[in-house]
Simulated assay, not measured.
Amino acid sequence: MKGVVFTEFMELVESRMGLDMLDRIITEAQLPNDGAYTSVGTYDHAELVRLVMALSSATGLAIPALVHMFGQHLFQRFSVGYPALFADATNAYDFLSRIDEVIHVEVRKLYPDAELPKLACERPAPGELVLLYSSPRGFADLAAGLIDGCIAHFGESITVTRTDLPRQDNLHRTRFHMAVAAA
């Protein structure tokens, strides 16, 4: 997993819960590098899981809720840090539909060793989008947070229905059905 994910997680914890909390979870997670991450480095995703578990233990907040919150934060940070990726998108569906074929291509140019999830999209009807997340790492809660962050970024009223699917070929799979909310 790219270090930018780790550095952004630490930024979220520090900005919302304080430096003492960040220090506490780094200590509790017993990380091999004592929490020293660079944005361009590559690290074991299990280290992020350990940080989230430590944060859950310290705050009493559920792990899925924390990961979802992080996804929302991460989307906002990406929209600020990488504005060129947002230039051609006029709404959430446009942006989400471009992730695998445009955005992930650009990410791989910057980080050739990035291990990205597969995000297949289809438009079954006007006002609807279905996104199928599949990854060897089970971060569907992060994907859900990113989706909600995207919807908020574009200021749209879209309902999201999540369906966790059985694993297939050792991949975690989740279906996100989105529909424009009725006025």
Rank of each mutant, 00 (worst) to 15 (best):
M1P: 15
V5N: 11
V5L: 05
T7C: 15
T7D: 05
E8D: 13
V13F: 08
V13N: 06
E14S: 14
E14D: 12
E14T: 05
R16W: 02
L22V: 12
D23P: 01
D23L: 11
D23Y: 04
I26W: 06
T27C: 09
A29F: 04
Q30V: 05
L31E: 09
P32Y: 12
N33K: 11
G35A: 14
A36F: 11
Y37Q: 01
T38Q: 11
S39M: 00
S39D: 09
G41Y: 10
T42Q: 11
Y43E: 09
A46H: 15
V49S: 04
S56R: 04
S56P: 15
S56K: 03
S56Y: 07
S56M: 06
S57Q: 12
L61Y: 01
L61S: 11
A62E: 15
I63V: 11
I63C: 14
M69F: 03
F70N: 06
Q72D: 05
F75V: 14
Q76H: 11
Q76E: 06
R77A: 02
S79P: 03
V80I: 13
A84Q: 10
A87N: 04
D88C: 10
D88S: 15
D88L: 11
T90P: 05
T90M: 14
F95S: 05
L96E: 01
S97P: 09
S97L: 13
R98L: 09
I103S: 07
V105P: 00
E106P: 03
R108G: 07
K109D: 01
L110N: 13
D113N: 12
D113R: 03
D113P: 02
A114W: 01
P117E: 07
P117N: 01
L119R: 02
L119M: 14
C121W: 05
E122T: 00
R123I: 09
R123H: 09
A125F: 00
G127D: 06
E128D: 05
E128N: 09
L129I: 09
Y133G: 01
S135L: 03
P136F: 00
R137M: 08
A140V: 09
A140L: 06
L142H: 03
L146H: 01
D148H: 12
G149P: 10
C150N: 01
I151M: 13
T163H: 06
Q168V: 07
L171Q: 15
H172C: 05
R173E: 12
H177F: 07
A182D: 06
